[in-house]
Simulated assay, not measured.
Amino acid sequence: MSAARSRALDWLLPPLCLACRNPVGDHHALCPHCWGGVAFITAPVCDRLGTPLPYDIGPGAVSPEAIANPPAFDRARAAFRFDDVGRSLIHGLKYGDRLELAPALARWMARAGRDVLDGADALVPVPLHWTRLFRRRFNQSAELARHLSALTGIATEPMLMKRVRRTAHQVGLTRARRIENVTGAFRIAEDRSTLVRGRNLVLVDDVLTTGATLEACARVLRRAGAARIDVLTAARVVDGPGAVHI
């Protein structure tokens, strides 16, 4: 009966590529062309920033960028680069209300973030301001964290952090303006403060561009006593073979 229902569903709603919407063999999959267009980030990567390194120089290697500008978080990992097909997937989830993308993105994130998820006590999605959440009806970061939680068994804490100040959209802003935009925008929910001190937390977001938002969240968690703060995103901006905005 289950197989019959599955065939009937495929007939009514045939599986389509997550990116280009052309027919594919399975739900929540990419066609061969789009799969080849996703620039997955694989080892070797900078241990702090998770950006690709030109060659493997051993465990714990860090990039010049991480040495010159160490981030407020401990480590960051991302599944793929924010370009071409990757950008269309992120925009589909974030702006196109395509929640069916979240399970696939979460699977790729779980694979890319194995080391930061190891020993994590909780997943903390980057919060939206209530006005933006009201208009969008969902928080894409919370959706990714929810599916990551189901895959890994790590608890998700969508109410741990609050965005207490409505900020302008970060798109198009310089790094300096982005930092100014999110300064003082986040705090720990009063009834969740005990969930931070001494715990290993993973901040979850859809994309890391300059990193200003995630840095602001990490500083708040650090001041609240978190033992370890890592970052896991579906995508990240990478300029050139090893450069990164942080």
Score class of each variant (00 low, 15 high):
residue 212 A to F: 11
residue 186 F to T: 00
residue 229 I to H: 04
residue 210 T to C: 08
residue 196 V to E: 04
residue 170 Q to H: 04
residue 141 S to R: 05
residue 232 L to G: 06
residue 136 R to Y: 08
residue 229 I to E: 05
residue 225 G to E: 08
residue 174 T to M: 07
residue 193 S to Y: 06
residue 200 N to F: 03
residue 170 Q to L: 15
residue 177 R to G: 00
residue 185 A to I: 00
residue 152 T to G: 08
residue 175 R to I: 06
residue 212 A to K: 12
residue 137 R to S: 15
residue 152 T to L: 09
residue 149 S to Q: 04
residue 205 D to S: 05
residue 210 T to G: 11
residue 228 R to H: 15
residue 189 A to D: 13
residue 219 R to C: 13
residue 195 L to I: 03
residue 220 V to R: 02
residue 222 R to Q: 13
residue 169 H to D: 12
residue 239 D to L: 12
residue 226 A to D: 00
residue 133 L to R: 15
residue 198 G to F: 11
residue 150 A to W: 06
residue 152 T to E: 09
residue 161 M to H: 00
residue 173 L to P: 04
residue 179 I to W: 09
residue 162 K to H: 07
residue 156 T to F: 00
residue 162 K to D: 01
residue 208 L to I: 12
residue 229 I to L: 09
residue 168 A to K: 14
residue 238 V to C: 12
residue 145 A to Q: 08
residue 169 H to C: 01
residue 185 A to W: 00
residue 220 V to A: 06
residue 191 D to H: 14
residue 146 R to K: 14
residue 133 L to W: 14
residue 173 L to E: 08
residue 145 A to D: 07
residue 151 L to F: 07
residue 216 A to Y: 03
residue 204 V to F: 04
residue 135 R to H: 13
residue 207 V to G: 09
residue 237 V to C: 12
residue 169 H to I: 05
residue 224 A to M: 06
residue 151 L to I: 15
residue 174 T to P: 04
residue 158 P to R: 01
residue 168 A to P: 02
residue 230 D to Y: 10
residue 187 R to P: 04
residue 229 I to F: 07
residue 149 S to F: 01
residue 180 E to C: 06
residue 212 A to P: 12
residue 205 D to E: 03
residue 201 L to R: 04
residue 135 R to T: 15
residue 184 G to M: 11
residue 208 L to E: 09
residue 143 E to R: 13
residue 221 L to A: 01
residue 204 V to G: 10
residue 233 T to D: 10
residue 157 E to T: 08
residue 219 R to K: 15
residue 158 P to G: 03
